[in-house]
Nucleic acid binder design. Structure first.
Lengths: 320, 320
DNA sequence: TTGTACGCGTTATCAT
DNA sequence: ATGATAACGCGTACAA
């Protein structure tokens, strides 16, 4: 509401002088400078970003886009992004898909971090630009001005399965996630590859379909209990399904890990409660690093490689 | 990136004509209109909000402000806000405190919903305006252009305590939250009032300090177990503390609800896992209604009363 | 230290 | 039916 003009009027000087003071230029008398700063303080003046960008053509605003409100860890990602950006003098605005499209067009943002799958590649490619670089999370887009930050699923899943094999497990079951998801694909690929490398057969009948929801894990485990062919260990593509599976197993009076071991992936909040052995993905750090990548693109120090976030196994009490 | 000018060039017409087509005015030939619409479609034209607001002085952008990334239910609130606003043609941008102050000054937003306590009343009063109304959640600010949406803690806590009394409980303990918080104050007031109304004494020694964190509940319950003066029931100002308390009780080999009953408040995600009896606050609905209040203020149909969200008791298995 | 032209995308007004 | 152009608001930059 209160702008540079108002300040000028109050101080009895011209707008130019106020502008000079605000931008720390030295061509202003000490006394005038102090009076102006005093007034800015009093009325809580803050420069109008639009006005600023109007002239310079540049802003310091970054858009973060998401739309899945069910995933609590998104807040951690946002916090990571927020922290890095505010440490580096950028403003963050968080948008859900429909409004993101508006704000990514307007030249009032300097770049974007995109998490929402609904924001299609075609659109991203159409707006990505030297003047408007984009970081996408959990997907890969081939474009000079789009950088990917993805979780390194493969390595950690391989490590998990290898360790399980070393512990003596041979008879594996797997509950998969949405098949089109990159996360699922990588996790399952690592699972089968590691078994193969160890010459351990994986029976396709021990693969159960899921969609990352707790219910799908529950249903899958119910099917397992009916099959009279219980695997020794049930590896799940995420925690929700692992927890659903454990509920079903418990209801059928199987003990975990007594009768069957279970592992998850994500380290969701509930995983700790259920003492589930899982893989912890550093969400905060992903956000932080995504923001860092974006700022580096903005500053021209571009890194062409896909940025991979490494995850860690959390051994708890659902594996024998 | 692509604006009205570009469209005009592509269609071989003037910007005026394009503007007329976009705004559905009838002074354009059918053929020209169709050609222009076609091009807009092809290149994915979307009107530039800044340019628009520059001319009209109005926008349809609403700012939502928060800063506590630990509270998962904030996502539900955001979803509620997002849904109402998008149903009603407004754009939502979510900001954390520092950038919110920028965007609430710039006249590019039409109003704001504020959740963050760090956004002080003084600032809110200074920006609230007929042209920029504000809805605050979980606090009360006395200003014509600021509307409050708060959770009705008192009624539901009274109901909870009264029901516990009816069940036969007489010896109550209480773990409080941050004392300056309105939520805590109302919950504790309802607690003591209801006991008083039933002529049940509450020993001040059965009040334990907490700060809404799980650790504080854990510590409080450890003190309780050392006191040799166990209450029959422990009412907690929120779920986190109730869960912390239950962990401590379990570690000291007390059974819940066998030896002592426990209640929480919030219906956090973990509450279900722990089968904790608690109070469910409709978070999604709070956000939705806050957005609704704001839009009504913008449209001039102002409702002077404080908007109260009512909550519901969820009976689970931590009360005998 | 001041005056003022300029930049942005869109819309309204007035001409053609 | 279509076009040319001023105006909107805020901050910056450059000449005075």
């Amino acid at each position: 509401m209160v702008g540079i003009k108002d300040i000028a009027k109050m101080a009895g000087v011209s707008v130019s002088t106020v502008s000079n003071v605000i931008n720390g230029r030295k061509n202003v008398g000490k006394e005038t400078r102090e009076r102006i700063l005093q007034i800015c303080e009093e009325v809580g003046y803050q420069p109008n970003l639009i006005g600023k960008s109007l002239k310079s053509g540049k802003t310091n605003t970054i858009v973060f886009n998401f739309s899945d409100f069910e995933r609590n860890f998104y807040l951690k990602i946002i916090k990571g992004i927020n922290d890095y950006l505010s440490e580096n003098g950028f403003d963050l605005i968080v948008c859900t898909t429909s409004s993101s499209k508006n704000f990514m067009r307007n030249n009032f943002a300097r770049g974007a971090i995109v998490l929402d799958k609904k924001m299609d590649n075609e659109f991203l490619v159409s707006v990505a630009d030297e003047q408007f670089p984009i970081v996408v999370m959990d997907r890969i887009v081939n474009n000079d001005y789009i950088q990917s930050v993805i979780v390194e699923n493969y390595t950690v899943m391989s490590e998990l399965v290898q360790t399980l094999i070393n512990k003596g497990f041979r008879n594996f079951g797997y509950i998969g996630g949405i098949e089109s998801s990159l996360d699922h694909q990588e996790r399952f690929q690592a699972f089968t590859d590691t078994l193969k490398n160890n010459n351990i057969p994986f029976q396709r009948t021990h693969y159960y379909f899921g969609d990352f929801t707790e219910e799908s894990g529950y249903r899958a485990a119910n099917i397992i209990t009916l099959s009279n062919n219980l695997p020794e260990i049930l590896v799940c593509s995420n925690d929700n399904m692992a927890i659903g599976a454990m509920k079903a197993l418990k209801e059928s009076n199987y003990s975990v890990p007594g009768d069957i071991s279970v592992t998850g992936f994500d380290d969701a909040t509930a995983a700790e409660t259920y003492e589930l052995t899982t893989v912890a993905i550093p969400r905060y750090e992903s956000g932080y690093l995504a923001a860092k990548e974006l700022v580096e693109m903005i500053q021209g120090t571009r890194n062409k490689d896909i940025f991979k976030i490494s995850a860690k196994i959390k051994w708890r009490n659902t594996v024998k």
